[in-house]
Amino acid sequence: MKTRKMKIHSRLLTAAASGLAPALFAPAAHAAWTLNLTPGIDQVSRDIYGLHMLAFWWSVGIAAVVFGFMIYSMVRFRHSKGAVPDTGLTHSTRVEVIWTTIPVLILISMAIPAARVLVETADTAGAQMSIRVTGYQWRWTYEYVGTPVKFVSSLDRRSDAARQLDSGIDPFSVPNYLLSVDHPLVVPAGVKVRVLVTGGDVIHSWWVPALGIKKDAIPGYVNEAWFDVDTDKLGTYRGQCAELCGRDHGFMPIVVQVVSKADFEKWLAQQEADLKKAPATAATTVTTALAAAPALDAAPAAPATAN
């Protein structure tokens, strides 16, 4: 555990120094294909996963019964096997009532937990820090509210080169093809983080499956979401823009780097230092990117560094 922490830590420093993230996160190769939803890395995403499985198994169960009955009838009552129709069998209030009430009960058994989880996802109260996420055609900008730290996060160079028409580059040769960025979002584990999502031009949607968050970035309006990653789930998690936003909608991924709270604070300090040192580099790109967006000083919620 300790060593792992160290590794990430050192990586982060280098990452901060040279803004060349992807090269470092390369050892992650290609996520193997999966069939099912990810349980994710925090309570909300796990609850969503539970809900998903509940609905899934109910569907399977109902399907088994209903389709089973259909197939039985279809096999059992074949004309070719001389079946004679029971034409008197035309209606029965009793069965109608039965197959109305049973589904009602099944639905209730899903509606209650669903409503619970819904309320949970909406409860941003008590967030210890806020990150402002703004979607642009076609990149994301992240601002650690209450700090000067803000940066643009766009598709990494290697994916971008490979994704061009007849680039001749084999996507399989690119680590995390289309799912890696130049500047990943770095967040602490074990801290309730509130994300403030908005759009700079058209609607985008900030989606990180592992966090169970998908919030549309509506120009002119701010949407809130939150996560609180388990402290044992450090690592890199990837998502994509999930609302058609034009030509390069498929090419504005999201990469979240979850680190321990301590590492996060170091990283944040490092970022602020860099900004002071070279306001030219990172800062300028950001300011151009944020030209459209108002300043942040009035935004609430103290940053994690404050407590």
Partner: peptide
């Protein structure tokens, strides 16, 4: 489904 049941299906 109930229409299928006890029919003479071709």
């Amino acid at each position: 489904s109930a229409t299928l049941y006890k029919g003479s299906i071709s």
